[in-house]
Amino acid sequence: MSETNCTHNCNTCGESCSSRQTEQTSFLEPLNPASTVKKVIGVVSGKGGVGKSLVTTMMAVRMNAKNYKTAILDADITGPSIPKAFGLGDDGVGMTPTGLMIPATTSMGIEVMSANLILDHETDPVIWRGPVIAGAVKQFWQEALWEDIDYMFVDMPPGTGDVPLTVFQSLPVDGIIIVTSPQELVSMIVTKAVNMAKKMNIPILGLVENMSYLSCPDCGKKISVFGESRIDEVAKENEIPVLAKIPIEPKIAKAVDEGAVEYLEAPWLDEAVKAVESI
């Protein structure tokens, strides 16, 4: 559609009108001049409990292992689980002389900002309304010292509400990974996330299916615990690739519970890593 003929509401048309691009850019929040972030990757899901935070941590670990300076902005303000996975429960954040927050750093050098790092106790609930939560996400982006970050992964809360909208409008998101699970509602839920990303002009890198199957410890046969996966069909319908199928593995849960996710090998994410490197 040409710019001169664009007389409609660009927020609902799905077209890449120049007026739409200008409007989207106008919402972007600038980083502090002391910070540098080259690429921002959102990790999203249409519903909770599918392993979005797990995928966020494992992707950050994989990219860090490839000698990229990696960071995680935990935008799941009311359900922050990133610090626990890295064993950062009591670390907190520091402050620079100029008042910028200094992210906590994992044992292998991944920088993390999360609501759980600024609470007195990691079990304290965050009882905030939507605008306050959205404001906290902006503060984590603007008022933290992000030094020479190659890839920042943003762990977003599930759904298509205030915080995902804030992230898409306020941060220069270069692409998103959609996380799902092999359940009957997957088609509708994934399509909602896909449609939101398209309306916001955010590139979709692909789908990651968590809890995809269980490998029998005796014979190696793949068992579909939650029913036969429809991820390939859903990906084809939405014209996006499947980046990974993560199995149900006791060692994954053990590593997260023990705060040792950095020591977990994740060969299932090879294609996802390639997709992130390609942007």
Rank of each mutant, 00 (worst) to 15 (best):
S187Q: 15
S278Q: 14
N210Y: 07
G79N: 05
I118K: 06
V190R: 00
S224R: 13
T7V: 15
P247R: 02
M63L: 15
M211N: 05
I110R: 00
T36A: 13
S18N: 14
P157L: 14
W128V: 02
A253G: 10
P217N: 08
G220Q: 10
K47R: 06
L28R: 11
V55Y: 02
M113F: 01
E271K: 12
E265P: 04
K52E: 06
S35R: 06
S16P: 09
V167C: 09
E265R: 06
K138E: 10
V163E: 07
A115W: 05
A65H: 11
V276W: 00
A197D: 12
L269D: 07
G94A: 11
L100D: 05
I118T: 08
D124Y: 07
D148A: 12
K69T: 05
D155C: 03
A104L: 00
E237T: 11
E209R: 03
E233G: 03
V44D: 02
A253M: 04
A275N: 09
I133E: 04
K39E: 13
S53H: 03
L269G: 03
L73T: 07
H8S: 13
T7P: 07
A85N: 06
D76Y: 01
S107T: 14
V61R: 01
W146H: 07
G89W: 00
S18A: 12
G130R: 08
L269E: 00
I240Q: 00
V93E: 01
Y151L: 07
Q139F: 04
G48R: 02
S35M: 11
N238H: 00
Q142L: 14
G79H: 09
V132P: 07
I110Q: 00
F140W: 06
D257S: 09
R20N: 13
L54K: 04
